[in-house]
Design a protein around this nucleic acid. Structure first.
Lengths: 356, 356
DNA sequence: ATGAAAGCGCTAACAA
DNA sequence: TTGTTAGCGCTTTCAT
């Protein structure tokens, strides 16, 4: 029975009449455009203050900008995305721009719906993270709206890409294991239903690099891949499968830390121990990996830097840049306690160095 | 040097002229409003299809709805939020509404900025998750925009609340430990800078309930709280502190699973083992808790159901409901392997039942 | 430096 | 049933 008469928002007209000036004047002040006397500026600002006026984004959008950056995330479950967003937010910091996020999901339909939703809302720029859409679709989008694609490697003439060098990262991971003396190194890969070119997708690159490095070191025959997903469940399932093979691997390179956690669980479940029986290395270096009881060896890639770069590029594009740029971040290896030389029983070369 | 002439979006006028009808007709069709002949409807739909027309949300917003639900999340790091969003998305499913998210952060300033950003963008409804703002501010907001507050317990006349019964959940947790024979049960609590009434905040309720249940069972003297944060780092730090006390607790009730992971790490670090030396129970039952090597005992609360309910309530409010409703979900205990009777050395009553 | 007026794409009275 | 018209709140020429 509440009679909550919804209040009308304060508009530019209210401010104008309150300050006894034209709406044009107010508009100029809020955009701090050229051609307003200090006196007028003061009056208007006082009125804005007094009335608590805030420009209506939709109305602004009809003529020009909405001051909104749309961020398309596949999901909210990867801690890595949180870092990207932190970087972006930092970069947008004191500009008028605001980031809004939307969940793209894992199907073409849902991702498309999300992209459309962003376009319908006239965002000034789009940061699209690890999309599964085909490049042609993204280019179509990018022709209409300034776009930055994060976590894919392709080269496009109409949008920018920000990514970590997954080839280098995966190489770091596999060679770390090889240096420790492992040869039977297995990999947990991610399955998706992307329409993008495989070589542009980070998980494909990680898997391909794994194979290449294995071959480069003469371990081509030991290649073993379980393709599940970059999630705890995926890692669990994938590692179970890998551990059931005979001979079983002495090390597992999981394409993502989440999957590595699942792998750790599978090893435990099999009654084996890490790193004595099996070494495990992840990718992403998420916070939980650093906990002393987990101490997961991982590949670090600076998500904050990537988010910041994406924000900068988006802003530049909005300001008018049309040439495309590619921004790559270099990953690094963080050695913790889930990797060690293989045990004597393994078929790798016997190693005498003890785990620290 | 690319001359990417940004294409003009297809508008309702384009569709109208293409279909040789008025814009009103088109408008009616897209809203499937009353008063269009099947013939006209077909023609218009064909034109829409052909031109790939999509209504411009900002323009719609100027007259009425934007078909946008704004979701304010404190951050993206809690897996629990992902569930809420899943529920919401499911509920919004085949409506025209789209959820957009915005990060509120942990300061009043950032949260306020985020709320304003949503209001500026004329969202039709707001789902605000675990805000720190004072009730009066939220009510002010709710008077302008249909609002549902999730994860706070207050009773408001102008907005709806969706929450889990944290009192019941915390009681479940503490009594589980007491039933196992523990008496020196410590708690890891969360510190924030909220302006809300303490009794409305879930972490305060969990802490208060912990104290109450301890007293109810004659363990009032054993109350020990470390107030850090509901994060892995917070749990680590909090548990370190608790474990350094003498006599040390035989069990730790962490207010959130993330903190419980940190606690697990601290126990490990101290050279103790779970659950032999220390039992640990979390809260939220996030996915990682179920991994066999973690097997964290926790309190489950159905985030998906909460998100779904929030969506339903928001839709109802948008349709005109003005009376307020409170929706509470009942949590349940999920016993795994991080809790067991205290060891003999403890000061609790000796227990003969062995951990399973 | 200031303001009048047109118009962005849409919806909602109202007329026909 | 259909179309005409008047805005929604803002920005942007273009006069003054």
């Amino acid at each position: 029975m509440a009679t909550s008469q919804r209040r009308r928002r304060v508009t530019i007209t209210d401010v104008a009449s309150h300050a006894q000036v034209s709406t044009t004047a107010v508009s100029k002040v809020i955009r701090n455009a050229y051609g307003v006397s200090p006196a007028m500026k003061d009056r208007v600002q006082a009125a804005i203050e007094e009335l608590g006026y805030r420009p209506h984004a939709a109305a602004r959008g009809m003529r020009g900008r909405t001051f909104t950056i749309g961020v398309l995330l596949p999901d909210l479950r990867s801690p890595f995305f949180a870092e990207i967003l932190d970087g972006l937010t930092e970069q947008l910091g004191d500009t008028e721009y605001q980031a809004i996020m939307i969940q793209g999901g894992t199907t073409h339909k849902s991702e498309r719906r999300a992209i459309d939703a962003l376009a319908d809302r006239q965002v000034d720029g789009i940061l699209i993270v690890a999309p599964i859409a085909a490049k042609t679709r993204l280019e179509e989008l990018a022709r209409d709206i300034p776009t930055v694609v994060l976590a894919r490697h392709e080269r496009s003439a109409v949008y920018d890409t920000v990514f970590a060098d997954d080839d280098a990262g995966a190489q770091l991971a596999v060679e770390h294991l090889i240096d420790l003396g492992h040869r039977r190194i297995a990999h947990i890969a991610h399955q998706d239903n992307a329409r993008a070119r495989p070589a542009d997708l980070l998980h494909v690159i990680r898997a391909e690099t794994y194979k290449r490095v294995m071959r480069d070191h003469g371990c081509g025959d030991e290649i073993a891949i379980a393709t599940t997903s970059y999630s705890a469940e995926g890692g669990l399932e994938g590692a179970r499968e890998l551990l059931s093979r005979s001979p079983r691997p002495t090390a597992i390179f999981a394409g993502a830390d989440q999957a590595a956690f699942g792998a750790l669980a599978a090893v435990h479940e099999a009654g084996l121990s890490v790193p004595a029986d099996i070494s495990v290395i992840g990718y992403d270096n998420i916070r939980l990996a650093a906990l002393p009881n987990i101490a997961l060896t991982s590949i670090d890639q600076d998500g904050v830097v990537m988010g910041r770069a994406a924000g900068r590029l988006l802003l530049d594009r909005i300001e008018g840049r049309t040439s495309a740029v590619r921004f790559a971040v270099v990953p690094s290896l963080v050695v913790r306690r889930t990797t060690a030389p293989p045990s004597e029983s393994g078929q790798g070369p016997a190693s005498t160095s003890a785990p620290t």
